[in-house]
Design a protein around this nucleic acid. Structure first.
Lengths: 148, 148
DNA sequence: TTACAATATTTGTATATACAAATGTAAATT
DNA sequence: AATTTACATTTGTATATACAAATATTGTAA
């Protein structure tokens, strides 16, 4: 990826700015790859992540604030995200018996089946997205990202 | 930044996935910093970038496709983004005399003044965002991001 | 027990973005 | 010149997101 070529500039960009632009460009590229992988399943990346979190609960329900806490990109509106999954029959929603303020969300069998298919597509896409980096380079990248 | 802590998981995440999650988390964090810096000026990051591109034109007008080409995050709708800047008096828009399909956009003096202020705030925010990385580390990070 | 604060979620509203279709203009082909 | 194709932008529509306010429930303290 050539930053200057992509944004069509010949000017010298300060290292700090260039790094941040670079980060955005890579993020956009990765996102496009993952989104394309999810497109056939008609779920957004956020919805996919929520399904994965719910599966990780192994039967135990999750409430909205737990979901939000565990999401990679925190959202202000988990309610409406769950609405979408509900509409697809991928999750069930029920008021918590012991604390009626809470809402308990669990993944359905249909959701699990769909998720299994998505998983394959996404993990392939993830490998594609980083295919030009060696294990060592990935390790180094993680170490550098840790510093943020 | 600790990935596992942020998304509250104790599971071992595959290196490829972890890198991509990491990238998203860092991107989100950086974006928040820059957006906060721009908040007092009531422009989005996209609007700020368009203003910078226009200033870089040094008087020459830019049309919408040129703008879109040079933006860090390409948008499907540059028209409405420019509408916003027009509403703030930061740009002028006119139909191109030689090719009436094209629209010529230039930054106004008011736009330049506002941009000068934003620039200071943003470059401070950019330095903040990468303050934990040395010049050397930034170089290495750029090299690794180039591989995507 | 009433009043107040804290928690969890939902709803309203404004803005942003993605994608497709529509519009207007220019260039190329017959 | 008329028709087709390509180009540049705009508009419509659906969905996504950010943020604040509203609602409902629970816990706590006077």
């Amino acid at each position: 990826m050539n930053v200057e070529e992509i944004i069509k500039t010949t000017k010298k960009i300060p290292l700090e700015s260039r790094t941040l632009i670079h980060l955005t460009l890579v993020h956009n590229q990765v996102n496009e790859i993952i989104n394309n992988a999810l497109k056939p399943f008609e779920v957004s990346l956020q919805q996919f992540n929520v399904l994965r979190i719910l599966r990780g609960q192994k039967g135990r329900p999750a409430n909205l604030s737990t979901l939000n806490e565990r999401m990679v990109t925190k959202m202000s509106n988990t309610t409406r995200l769950v609405d979408k999954l509900l509409g697809k029959g991928y999750v069930n929603r029920a008021v918590c018996a012991t604390n009626r303020r809470k809402v308990e969300i669990i993944i359905t069998d249909l959701g699990k089946e769909a998720l299994a298919k998505m998983d394959k597509a996404v993990s392939k896409a993830e490998k594609d997205a980083v295919s030009n980096l060696s294990q060592n380079e990935l390790e180094t990248l993680n170490t550098l990202l840790d510093k943020f």
